[in-house]
Computed example of a mutant assay.
Amino acid sequence: MKKSIVWMASYPKSGNTWARIFLANYMANMDRPVPINNAHRIAMGDSITKMYERVAGHPIDVTDVDAVLRLRPGVLRGIVANNADVNLVKTHNARTTARGVPLIPDQVTRSAVYMLRNPLDMVLSYARHYGMTPDEAVHVVSHPDNANPPDDQTVTQFMGSWSEHVRSWTAKAPYPILVLRYEDMLSDPRRSFAQLLAHLGMPVDPARLDRAIRFSSFDELSQQEKAEGFIEKSPESERFFARGESDQWKTDLPPRLVKKMKHAHRKVMKHYGYLE
């Protein structure tokens, strides 16, 4: 079995979609932006219900978590069966096991890109995306059993708390893991995205890099979403691409919730420069 999967991993609302749209534009190398509703083709998701039904050979009950997990090894084998050197796969799953099933098995993994974001900003975007209050979002992203429940389109995604998720993906691994901070992607996109390309073994062409960054800017993505909608938008939220800024928490997250988040995630926040 070929080790061809490069995981594009993150906690929700941490820059995964942005990075994939950048890659779509860089690879396409066109004189106009790639439509955002085509960009998902650059990295398949690991939790798409249809993929599990294809392995099962029939419709599945996505609420039967154990049965779905038993199908996961077959889904991942199906991804690597094309014998490609690299298969980009998006995931929000933690690098852990769920009910005895490895979610990110070494046997199919070539490398990983892990994107993380200041959890004080992430939790605000998380709340908007999932139709939660900030209080509810602070609770769930700090809970060890946090998971995205299944629906017709996706199976359960096992995330755990933000700190657990970050630790799982940044722990020692038998393959390379590139860690990118969302804030660095914002402040120095040329450096961050050049690192991403180099990690994937792609040549870094400066003009092409600048064009792909411009074509994946938040202004561009917001305009496209306004005009055409976005297939990855949650039905609970008004839009997917909101402000896309850093330090929104300073004005938008109540001090008592800031205190709760810092208490729950202090060690990991400090390690990645999110606490003085």
Score class of each variant (00 low, 15 high):
Lys2Val: 06
Ser10His: 08
Lys13His: 02
Ser14Pro: 14
Ser14His: 14
Trp18Tyr: 10
Arg20Asp: 02
Phe22Ala: 09
Ala24Gly: 14
Tyr26Gly: 10
Ala28Tyr: 12
Asn29Met: 04
Asp31Ile: 03
Asp31Met: 08
Val34Leu: 07
Pro35Asp: 03
Pro35Gly: 10
Asn37Leu: 11
Asn38Trp: 15
Asn38Ala: 09
Ile42Ala: 00
Gly45Cys: 01
Gly45Glu: 10
Arg54Met: 08
Arg54Lys: 14
Arg54Asp: 14
Val55Glu: 11
Ala56Phe: 04
Pro59Thr: 01
Ile60Tyr: 03
Asp61Thr: 09
Leu69Gln: 05
Arg72Asn: 05
Val80Asn: 02
Asn83Gln: 13
Ala84Gly: 03
Ala84Pro: 01
Asn87Glu: 02
Val89Thr: 10
Thr91Cys: 04
His92Gln: 01
Asn93Ile: 02
Arg95Ile: 03
Thr96Leu: 11
Thr97Phe: 10
Pro102Ala: 09
Ile104Asp: 12
Ile104Glu: 13
Gln107Ser: 08
Val108Ser: 08
Arg110Asp: 05
Ala112Pro: 05
Val113Cys: 02
Tyr114Ala: 07
Met115His: 05
Leu116Glu: 04
Asn118Gln: 04
Asp121Leu: 07
Met132Lys: 15
Met132Gly: 06
Glu136Ile: 07
Ala137Thr: 11
His139Arg: 14
Val140Lys: 10
Val140Asp: 08
Ser142Tyr: 12
Asp145Leu: 09
Asn148Trp: 13
Asp152Pro: 05
Asp152Trp: 06
Gln153Val: 00
Gln153Arg: 14
Val155Lys: 11
Thr156Leu: 00
Gln157Gly: 08
Gly160Asn: 05
Ser163Arg: 06
Glu164Val: 03
Lys172His: 12
Ala173Lys: 06
Tyr175Arg: 01
Tyr175Lys: 00
Pro176Ile: 01
Pro176Cys: 02
Pro176Asn: 07
Ile177Phe: 06
Val179Arg: 11
Leu180Ser: 05
Leu180Ala: 03
Tyr182Thr: 07
Glu183His: 07
Pro189Lys: 11
Ser192Gln: 08
Ser192Asn: 05
Ala194Thr: 14
Leu196Met: 15
Leu197Trp: 09
His199Trp: 08
Leu200Gly: 11
Met202Ala: 14
Met202Ile: 14
Val204Gln: 11
Asp205Cys: 02
Asp205Met: 07
Ala207Leu: 14
Arg208Glu: 06
Asp210Gly: 01
Ala212Cys: 13
Arg214Met: 13
Arg214Glu: 15
Phe215Gln: 13
Ser217Asp: 14
Phe218Gly: 07
Asp219Asn: 15
Glu220Gly: 02
Ser222Trp: 14
Gln223Ser: 10
Gln223Asp: 15
Gln223Lys: 09
Lys226Gln: 14
Ala227His: 03
Glu232Lys: 15
Glu232Phe: 15
Lys233Trp: 03
Ser234Leu: 09
Glu236Gly: 06
Ser237His: 09
Phe240Asn: 07
Phe240Gly: 01
Gly244Met: 07
Glu245Cys: 06
Glu245Ala: 06
Ser246Met: 15
Asp247Pro: 00
Gln248His: 02
Lys250Pro: 00
Leu253Gly: 08
Arg256His: 13
Arg256Lys: 01
Lys259Ile: 00
Lys262Arg: 15
Lys262Tyr: 00
Ala264Phe: 04
Ala264Trp: 01
His265Leu: 03
His265Arg: 02
Tyr272Gly: 04
Gly273Glu: 04
Leu275Lys: 07
